[in-house]
Design a protein around this nucleic acid. Structure first.
Lengths: 240, 240
DNA sequence: TGTACATCAGTGAACGCGCGTTCACTGATGTAC
DNA sequence: TGTACATCAGTGAACGCGCGTTCACTGATGTAC
């Protein structure tokens, strides 16, 4: 379907670009980190290796774009959950955001590995990455803006408060997503949720829970409920 | 120093084996997962590639041994902390175990990546791995044997209880480390601690906290204190 | 509508590279008598 | 103590492989008049 001023050639070009990316992800699915080979991708698309250079400047360019896409995709999934629960209680929303993040990762494990793992020996991630990660965590700030700090977390909160006062870009980010909140408290909660999410999801995606008798979703719900209790979020836990 | 019946040749052999492993780890430090090259290792030791085949059957054999060593090392670090705090309160001991695990990982990030990440495209981990992971987590079971389950975690506990009754090997493992305890409760707590530890440590080791204004140790202490509160462990938090 | 020209996707050959692994060998170290 | 033999660490050449990337090219698609 032509959109506006896209010429047929451009549409074809975009289509092939997407096929290349798709093949690249599939290939990383079986083989992990550094298993991305331009020649192998070309082969699965019925092309020869050099043809890919019409679409991407180099192997690293392709990798960079895949990582950017993955961040965008994750951020979109979280944002979607935030919109879908806009009318819910903070506690419900936190459960929804965390579940959305986990489900996104489980559905697209190759993408998750791209964000979570060190992708490749030689590859150096672009600085842009920080921005992208912030977009994923933003909605958590919004929800946790309704939370209180608790005694054991005061030390963490204090470190973050000092940092925010020294780092305008970070303060602006928090303010964007949680304008009314105590920034350091919302950020402390977000970091905790982030670490808990990452711990559970990365263990699950790497199959380390396979030999254990619990579901990752159950574990995640316990952990989200725990932080919601600590921060005294209002609302009740949604049914599983 | 010759130990018993070690001939000089065997001592030399062991020494070179260790030098190879050491070089392998250093190489994985700069380059991550699949960056392990026999030829490169040999070069740094002033040898030629084929010489390594006198010490290891193949590249995969070397990798397998490195992973086994890493697990042993991690387990030893945690065990050491458990012994050093044997007289302490459960809460103090839990902080000590978690801190020991994190410090081990931070001091030897290459080793940690070996346990945590998917090591290499082609490499398949041996089944032995589950045993090794259990040795690392064992001391946590012992300490958390003093904990209570809390309402939000009942669902997780129930899943684990069902699994333990179906899986004698797992039940035996828990019983070894926590003979007096409610096995499912101790295990639920251990899995939560494991996931929190892994989340924090892997984010730290991958440098994802670098752009943020808190120390990982502070975050870990908050998280350990949180689980200690949830499980009503006795004792007070040791000073940082 | 038809013709001349420009664009550009894709090919095939070639480059240099490093890899894991094998093999027959050299030469030093250790052992048996 | 000296000699004959076995062990074994390490070498150097060679194998086949796949990689990223370059280059000059062909041929189809699109554009301008």
């Amino acid at each position: 379907m032509p959109t506006g001023r896209d010429t047929p050639r451009q549409r074809y070009r975009n289509q092939v670009r997407n096929e290349i990316k798709q093949a690249a992800l599939a290939q990383m699915g079986t083989g992990g980190a550094g298993a991305l080979s331009l020649n192998a991708i070309a082969r699965t698309l019925g092309m020869t290796g050099p043809a890919l250079y019409k679409y991407f400047g180099s192997r690293d360019d392709l990798l960079t774009e895949l990582i950017r896409d993955a961040y965008d995709d994750a951020a979109a999934a979280v944002r979607r959950a935030a919109r879908a629960t806009a009318a819910g209680s903070p506690r419900e929303r936190l459960h929804a955001l965390a579940a959305a993040y986990r489900e996104w990762a489980v559905k697209a494990p190759h993408l998750y590995q791209l964000l979570a793992g060190t992708p490749s020996p030689t590859y150096q991630a672009p600085a842009e990455t920080v921005e992208n990660a912030r977009a994923v965590l933003g909605p958590f700030l919004t929800v946790l803006a309704h939370g209180q700090c608790w005694p054991a977390a005061e030390g963490l909160r204090a470190e973050l408060e000092r940092w925010l006062s020294r780092t305008p870009a970070a303060a602006a980010w928090v303010h964007d997503y949680a304008p009314e909140a105590d920034a350091a408290t919302a950020l402390a909660g977000t970091i905790i949720v982030w670490a808990r999410l990452h711990g559970i999801v990365s263990l699950e995606v790497q199959g380390q829970f396979d030999g254990m008798g619990h579901r990752a979703a159950t574990l995640l719900a316990v952990e989200v409920e725990s932080i919601a209790d600590s921060m005294q979020l209002s609302g009740s836990q949604p049914p599983a």
